[in-house]
Design a protein around this nucleic acid. Structure first.
Length: 322
DNA sequence: TGCCAGGCGGGGT
DNA sequence: ACCCCGCATGGC
Protein backbone atom coordinates (compact mmCIF):
# COMPACT_ATOMS: atom_id res chain seq x y z
CA UNK A 1 0.00 0.00 0.00
CA UNK A 2 1.25 3.44 -0.89
CA UNK A 3 2.12 5.74 1.98
CA UNK A 4 1.08 9.34 1.49
CA UNK A 5 2.57 12.14 3.56
CA UNK A 6 0.86 15.18 5.00
CA UNK A 7 1.66 18.26 2.95
CA UNK A 8 -0.96 20.78 4.05
CA UNK A 9 -3.62 21.35 6.65
CA UNK A 10 -6.11 24.17 7.10
CA UNK A 11 -9.70 25.30 6.82
CA UNK A 12 -11.81 26.30 3.85
CA UNK A 13 -14.69 27.40 6.07
CA UNK A 14 -14.33 31.14 5.64
CA UNK A 15 -13.75 31.10 1.88
CA UNK A 16 -16.56 28.62 1.35
CA UNK A 17 -18.97 30.77 3.36
CA UNK A 18 -17.93 33.94 1.53
CA UNK A 19 -18.58 32.29 -1.81
CA UNK A 20 -21.80 30.61 -0.75
CA UNK A 21 -20.37 27.11 -1.10
CA UNK A 22 -22.00 24.34 0.93
CA UNK A 23 -19.29 21.73 1.43
CA UNK A 24 -21.76 19.18 2.83
CA UNK A 25 -23.81 19.26 -0.36
CA UNK A 26 -20.71 19.45 -2.55
CA UNK A 27 -19.17 16.38 -0.91
CA UNK A 28 -22.34 14.31 -0.81
CA UNK A 29 -23.57 14.67 -4.41
CA UNK A 30 -22.56 11.79 -6.71
CA UNK A 31 -20.27 10.25 -4.11
CA UNK A 32 -19.64 6.73 -2.84
CA UNK A 33 -19.79 5.45 0.72
CA UNK A 34 -16.05 4.77 0.74
CA UNK A 35 -15.36 8.44 -0.09
CA UNK A 36 -17.98 10.17 2.04
CA UNK A 37 -19.59 9.25 5.34
CA UNK A 38 -21.81 12.27 5.95
CA UNK A 39 -19.10 14.08 7.85
CA UNK A 40 -15.80 13.73 6.02
CA UNK A 41 -15.02 13.23 2.36
CA UNK A 42 -12.02 12.09 0.37
CA UNK A 43 -11.13 14.18 -2.66
CA UNK A 44 -8.65 12.62 -5.08
CA UNK A 45 -6.39 15.41 -6.30
CA UNK A 46 -4.04 13.32 -8.43
CA UNK A 47 -4.12 9.68 -9.47
CA UNK A 48 -0.77 9.31 -11.21
CA UNK A 49 1.34 10.86 -8.50
CA UNK A 50 -1.20 10.04 -5.81
CA UNK A 51 -2.43 12.96 -3.78
CA UNK A 52 -5.67 13.10 -1.78
CA UNK A 53 -7.44 15.49 0.53
CA UNK A 54 -9.62 14.60 3.48
CA UNK A 55 -12.20 17.36 3.90
CA UNK A 56 -14.84 17.76 6.59
CA UNK A 57 -18.21 19.35 5.92
CA UNK A 58 -17.17 22.26 8.13
CA UNK A 59 -14.16 22.92 5.96
CA UNK A 60 -11.18 21.43 7.80
CA UNK A 61 -8.86 19.72 5.38
CA UNK A 62 -5.64 17.76 5.25
CA UNK A 63 -3.81 17.01 2.00
CA UNK A 64 -1.58 13.96 1.65
CA UNK A 65 0.73 13.20 -1.27
CA UNK A 66 3.11 10.43 -2.26
CA UNK A 67 5.89 12.84 -3.15
CA UNK A 68 6.95 16.18 -1.67
CA UNK A 69 4.54 18.79 -3.01
CA UNK A 70 4.33 22.55 -2.68
CA UNK A 71 1.54 23.05 -0.12
CA UNK A 72 0.24 26.09 -1.96
CA UNK A 73 -0.04 24.08 -5.14
CA UNK A 74 -1.82 21.25 -3.29
CA UNK A 75 -4.36 23.65 -1.79
CA UNK A 76 -4.90 25.31 -5.17
CA UNK A 77 -5.66 21.91 -6.62
CA UNK A 78 -8.06 21.09 -3.76
CA UNK A 79 -9.93 24.36 -4.23
CA UNK A 80 -10.19 23.65 -7.94
CA UNK A 81 -11.51 20.13 -7.40
CA UNK A 82 -14.18 21.46 -5.05
CA UNK A 83 -15.09 24.37 -7.31
CA UNK A 84 -14.59 26.81 -4.41
CA UNK A 85 -13.55 29.70 -6.65
CA UNK A 86 -15.94 28.97 -9.49
CA UNK A 87 -18.44 31.82 -9.66
CA UNK A 88 -21.83 30.32 -10.45
CA UNK A 89 -23.63 33.66 -10.28
CA UNK A 90 -24.58 33.68 -13.93
CA UNK A 91 -25.57 30.01 -13.93
CA UNK A 92 -27.80 30.47 -10.87
CA UNK A 93 -29.33 33.61 -12.31
CA UNK A 94 -30.39 31.74 -15.46
CA UNK A 95 -31.51 28.77 -13.37
CA UNK A 96 -33.73 30.86 -11.09
CA UNK A 97 -36.03 31.68 -13.99
CA UNK A 98 -35.76 28.31 -15.71
CA UNK A 99 -38.67 25.86 -15.81
CA UNK A 100 -36.46 22.90 -15.05
CA UNK A 101 -33.94 24.27 -12.58
CA UNK A 102 -35.63 27.04 -10.58
CA UNK A 103 -36.30 24.71 -7.64
CA UNK A 104 -32.75 23.44 -7.81
CA UNK A 105 -31.37 26.99 -7.88
CA UNK A 106 -33.38 27.94 -4.80
CA UNK A 107 -32.20 25.00 -2.71
CA UNK A 108 -28.82 24.00 -4.09
CA UNK A 109 -27.04 27.27 -4.74
CA UNK A 110 -24.25 25.94 -2.50
CA UNK A 111 -23.54 22.92 -4.67
CA UNK A 112 -20.35 22.82 -6.69
CA UNK A 113 -19.27 20.07 -9.06
CA UNK A 114 -16.40 17.98 -7.68
CA UNK A 115 -13.98 17.39 -10.50
CA UNK A 116 -11.91 14.33 -11.27
CA UNK A 117 -9.14 13.67 -13.73
CA UNK A 118 -10.06 13.66 -17.40
CA UNK A 119 -9.23 9.95 -17.55
CA UNK A 120 -11.63 9.17 -14.75
CA UNK A 121 -14.30 11.46 -16.21
CA UNK A 122 -14.19 9.40 -19.38
CA UNK A 123 -14.55 6.15 -17.44
CA UNK A 124 -17.57 7.62 -15.64
CA UNK A 125 -19.08 8.58 -18.98
CA UNK A 126 -18.50 5.17 -20.54
CA UNK A 127 -20.22 3.49 -17.57
CA UNK A 128 -23.33 5.60 -18.19
CA UNK A 129 -23.63 4.53 -21.82
CA UNK A 130 -26.86 2.71 -22.62
CA UNK A 131 -27.44 1.85 -18.98
CA UNK A 132 -29.56 3.20 -16.15
CA UNK A 133 -28.02 5.59 -13.67
CA UNK A 134 -28.19 2.80 -11.11
CA UNK A 135 -26.38 0.28 -13.27
CA UNK A 136 -23.76 2.84 -14.28
CA UNK A 137 -22.87 3.67 -10.72
CA UNK A 138 -22.92 0.02 -9.77
CA UNK A 139 -20.35 -0.65 -12.50
CA UNK A 140 -18.16 2.20 -11.33
CA UNK A 141 -18.33 1.10 -7.73
CA UNK A 142 -17.36 -2.46 -8.60
CA UNK A 143 -14.60 -1.17 -10.83
CA UNK A 144 -13.01 0.86 -8.03
CA UNK A 145 -13.44 -1.85 -5.41
CA UNK A 146 -12.17 -4.62 -7.71
CA UNK A 147 -8.98 -2.81 -8.65
CA UNK A 148 -8.66 -2.04 -4.94
CA UNK A 149 -5.89 0.49 -5.21
CA UNK A 150 -5.28 1.64 -1.64
CA UNK A 151 -3.20 4.33 -0.03
CA UNK A 152 -2.56 5.32 3.56
CA UNK A 153 -3.15 9.00 4.30
CA UNK A 154 -2.46 9.67 7.97
CA UNK A 155 -4.98 7.57 9.91
CA UNK A 156 -7.14 7.04 6.84
CA UNK A 157 -6.97 4.18 4.41
CA UNK A 158 -8.10 5.60 1.09
CA UNK A 159 -9.38 3.75 -1.97
CA UNK A 160 -8.12 5.21 -5.25
CA UNK A 161 -9.56 4.68 -8.74
CA UNK A 162 -7.29 2.70 -11.08
CA UNK A 163 -4.87 4.55 -13.33
CA UNK A 164 -4.74 3.84 -17.08
CA UNK A 165 -1.66 1.72 -16.35
CA UNK A 166 -3.56 -0.37 -13.75
CA UNK A 167 -6.29 -1.08 -16.29
CA UNK A 168 -3.79 -2.10 -18.98
CA UNK A 169 -1.97 -4.41 -16.56
CA UNK A 170 -5.17 -6.25 -15.71
CA UNK A 171 -8.02 -5.49 -18.12
CA UNK A 172 -9.93 -8.61 -17.06
CA UNK A 173 -11.08 -6.76 -13.93
CA UNK A 174 -13.28 -4.61 -16.17
CA UNK A 175 -15.28 -7.65 -17.13
CA UNK A 176 -15.45 -8.79 -13.51
CA UNK A 177 -16.89 -5.35 -12.75
CA UNK A 178 -19.62 -6.20 -15.29
CA UNK A 179 -18.82 -3.44 -17.76
CA UNK A 180 -19.86 -5.68 -20.63
CA UNK A 181 -19.02 -4.33 -24.06
CA UNK A 182 -17.86 -1.07 -22.47
CA UNK A 183 -14.70 -2.77 -21.24
CA UNK A 184 -12.93 -2.51 -24.57
CA UNK A 185 -13.67 1.21 -24.76
CA UNK A 186 -12.10 1.74 -21.34
CA UNK A 187 -9.03 -0.20 -22.51
CA UNK A 188 -8.74 2.02 -25.59
CA UNK A 189 -9.02 5.14 -23.42
CA UNK A 190 -6.31 3.80 -21.12
CA UNK A 191 -4.08 3.13 -24.15
CA UNK A 192 -4.63 6.66 -25.41
CA UNK A 193 -3.52 8.13 -22.08
CA UNK A 194 -0.57 5.75 -21.63
CA UNK A 195 0.57 6.36 -25.20
CA UNK A 196 0.36 10.12 -24.70
CA UNK A 197 -2.25 10.50 -27.47
CA UNK A 198 -4.49 12.12 -24.88
CA UNK A 199 -3.07 14.27 -22.14
CA UNK A 200 -4.92 16.55 -19.81
CA UNK A 201 -2.34 19.34 -20.10
CA UNK A 202 -2.43 19.41 -23.90
CA UNK A 203 -6.20 19.24 -24.16
CA UNK A 204 -6.88 21.89 -21.53
CA UNK A 205 -5.58 24.63 -23.84
CA UNK A 206 -7.84 23.70 -26.76
CA UNK A 207 -11.29 25.01 -27.58
CA UNK A 208 -14.26 22.98 -26.31
CA UNK A 209 -14.97 21.75 -29.84
CA UNK A 210 -11.35 20.68 -30.32
CA UNK A 211 -11.32 18.86 -26.98
CA UNK A 212 -14.48 17.01 -27.92
CA UNK A 213 -12.95 16.04 -31.25
CA UNK A 214 -9.76 14.75 -29.61
CA UNK A 215 -11.68 12.65 -27.09
CA UNK A 216 -13.94 11.26 -29.81
CA UNK A 217 -10.93 9.96 -31.67
CA UNK A 218 -11.11 7.01 -29.27
CA UNK A 219 -13.52 4.39 -30.57
CA UNK A 220 -16.43 4.08 -28.17
CA UNK A 221 -16.22 7.70 -26.99
CA UNK A 222 -18.99 9.72 -28.59
CA UNK A 223 -20.34 13.18 -28.02
CA UNK A 224 -22.11 12.38 -24.75
CA UNK A 225 -19.12 10.72 -23.11
CA UNK A 226 -16.63 13.32 -24.36
CA UNK A 227 -18.72 16.23 -23.12
CA UNK A 228 -19.46 14.68 -19.74
CA UNK A 229 -15.74 14.00 -19.29
CA UNK A 230 -14.85 17.60 -20.23
CA UNK A 231 -17.24 18.84 -17.58
CA UNK A 232 -16.07 16.43 -14.88
CA UNK A 233 -12.37 16.57 -15.66
CA UNK A 234 -11.72 20.04 -17.04
CA UNK A 235 -14.62 22.13 -15.74
CA UNK A 236 -15.41 23.01 -19.37
CA UNK A 237 -19.19 23.34 -19.55
CA UNK A 238 -19.78 24.91 -22.96
CA UNK A 239 -20.98 21.72 -24.66
CA UNK A 240 -23.89 19.87 -23.05
CA UNK A 241 -23.84 16.05 -22.87
CA UNK A 242 -27.30 15.66 -24.38
CA UNK A 243 -28.59 12.11 -24.10
CA UNK A 244 -32.07 10.74 -24.74
CA UNK A 245 -33.01 11.56 -21.12
CA UNK A 246 -32.17 15.26 -21.35
CA UNK A 247 -33.50 15.43 -24.90
CA UNK A 248 -36.93 14.16 -23.88
CA UNK A 249 -37.18 16.21 -20.69
CA UNK A 250 -36.06 19.45 -22.32
CA UNK A 251 -38.30 18.88 -25.30
CA UNK A 252 -41.28 18.53 -22.97
CA UNK A 253 -40.36 21.36 -20.62
CA UNK A 254 -39.44 23.94 -23.26
CA UNK A 255 -41.83 22.83 -25.99
CA UNK A 256 -39.00 22.32 -28.44
CA UNK A 257 -38.70 19.42 -30.94
CA UNK A 258 -36.20 16.80 -29.76
CA UNK A 259 -33.85 17.42 -32.65
CA UNK A 260 -33.55 21.08 -31.65
CA UNK A 261 -32.97 20.54 -27.95
CA UNK A 262 -29.22 20.84 -28.17
CA UNK A 263 -29.30 24.18 -29.97
CA UNK A 264 -31.96 25.50 -27.62
CA UNK A 265 -30.07 24.30 -24.56
CA UNK A 266 -26.84 25.95 -25.64
CA UNK A 267 -28.70 29.16 -26.39
CA UNK A 268 -30.22 29.18 -22.94
CA UNK A 269 -27.29 28.01 -20.82
CA UNK A 270 -24.29 29.21 -22.83
CA UNK A 271 -21.03 28.41 -21.08
CA UNK A 272 -23.00 26.64 -18.31
CA UNK A 273 -24.63 24.09 -20.60
CA UNK A 274 -23.01 20.96 -19.19
CA UNK A 275 -23.40 22.08 -15.59
CA UNK A 276 -27.11 22.58 -16.22
CA UNK A 277 -27.40 19.00 -17.50
CA UNK A 278 -25.69 17.63 -14.40
CA UNK A 279 -27.84 19.84 -12.16
CA UNK A 280 -30.96 18.47 -13.84
CA UNK A 281 -29.94 14.91 -13.02
CA UNK A 282 -29.62 15.96 -9.37
CA UNK A 283 -32.96 17.78 -9.43
CA UNK A 284 -34.76 14.70 -10.76
CA UNK A 285 -32.76 12.20 -8.70
CA UNK A 286 -31.49 10.67 -11.98
CA UNK A 287 -34.71 8.71 -12.14
CA UNK A 288 -35.36 6.65 -15.28
CA UNK A 289 -36.94 8.68 -18.06
CA UNK A 290 -40.49 7.50 -17.54
CA UNK A 291 -40.50 8.58 -13.90
CA UNK A 292 -38.52 11.74 -14.60
CA UNK A 293 -41.19 12.81 -17.11
CA UNK A 294 -43.91 12.15 -14.53
CA UNK A 295 -41.99 14.28 -12.03
CA UNK A 296 -41.81 17.07 -14.59
CA UNK A 297 -45.57 16.92 -15.18
CA UNK A 298 -46.18 17.19 -11.43
CA UNK A 299 -43.64 19.97 -11.05
CA UNK A 300 -41.60 17.88 -8.62
CA UNK A 301 -38.26 19.33 -9.62
CA UNK A 302 -36.34 19.27 -6.37
CA UNK A 303 -34.46 16.21 -5.15
CA UNK A 304 -36.35 13.78 -2.94
CA UNK A 305 -33.90 12.50 -0.28
CA UNK A 306 -36.04 9.42 0.30
CA UNK A 307 -35.08 8.10 -3.14
CA UNK A 308 -32.15 5.69 -2.80
CA UNK A 309 -29.91 5.51 -4.68
CA UNK A 310 -29.89 8.95 -6.25
CA UNK A 311 -27.12 11.47 -6.88
CA UNK A 312 -27.83 12.87 -3.41
CA UNK A 313 -28.06 9.55 -1.57
CA UNK A 314 -25.62 7.36 -3.47
CA UNK A 315 -23.07 7.72 -0.65
CA UNK A 316 -25.40 6.06 1.84
CA UNK A 317 -26.67 3.44 -0.59
CA UNK A 318 -23.68 1.18 -1.05
CA UNK A 319 -25.79 -1.96 -0.60
CA UNK A 320 -28.15 -1.01 -3.46
CA UNK A 321 -25.38 -0.54 -5.97
CA UNK A 322 -23.11 -3.48 -5.22
C1' DT B 1 -40.30 -13.56 -20.09
C1' DG B 2 -38.93 -10.02 -22.85
C1' DC B 3 -37.93 -5.18 -22.94
C1' DC B 4 -35.44 -1.23 -21.99
C1' DA B 5 -31.75 1.95 -20.00
C1' DG B 6 -28.19 9.15 -19.27
C1' DG B 7 -24.59 5.61 -26.21
C1' DC B 8 -22.02 4.25 -29.94
C1' DG B 9 -20.39 2.74 -34.44
C1' DG B 10 -21.30 0.71 -38.68
C1' DG B 11 -24.37 -0.05 -42.05
C1' DG B 12 -27.96 1.60 -45.05
C1' DT B 13 -30.81 5.34 -47.77
C1' DA C 1 -28.67 14.40 -42.88
C1' DC C 2 -31.12 11.06 -41.54
C1' DC C 3 -32.76 5.80 -40.05
C1' DC C 4 -31.74 1.24 -38.11
C1' DC C 5 -29.51 -2.34 -35.84
C1' DG C 6 -26.69 -4.91 -32.45
C1' DC C 7 -24.34 -4.75 -28.37
C1' DA C 8 -23.27 -6.94 -22.32
C1' DT C 9 -25.61 -6.42 -18.39
C1' DG C 10 -29.16 -5.75 -14.77
C1' DG C 11 -33.79 -4.55 -13.13
C1' DC C 12 -38.49 -5.05 -13.51
Amino acid sequence: MEELRLVARGSLARDAAERGVDLGVTLSVYNFDFWFDGCRGVVVLDLDDPCVAVVSVDGDYAVYCRHPTDPREAVRRLRWCLGIDEDLGEFLSIARSDELLKGFAARFSGWRLRSSSLWWGLVVGVCQQNASFRQGWSMLRKLIVSYGRRARAGDNEVLLPPRPRDVLENPAVLTEARLGYRASTVVRIAEAFEGGVLSEEKLASLSPEEIEGALRSVKGVGSYTARLAMALGLRVYDLPPVDRWVRALASRAYGVPEREVERFWRGRWGRWSALAVIALTIALDAQPLRKALERLEKGELVPDPSIVPSPLTLWRASDQTR
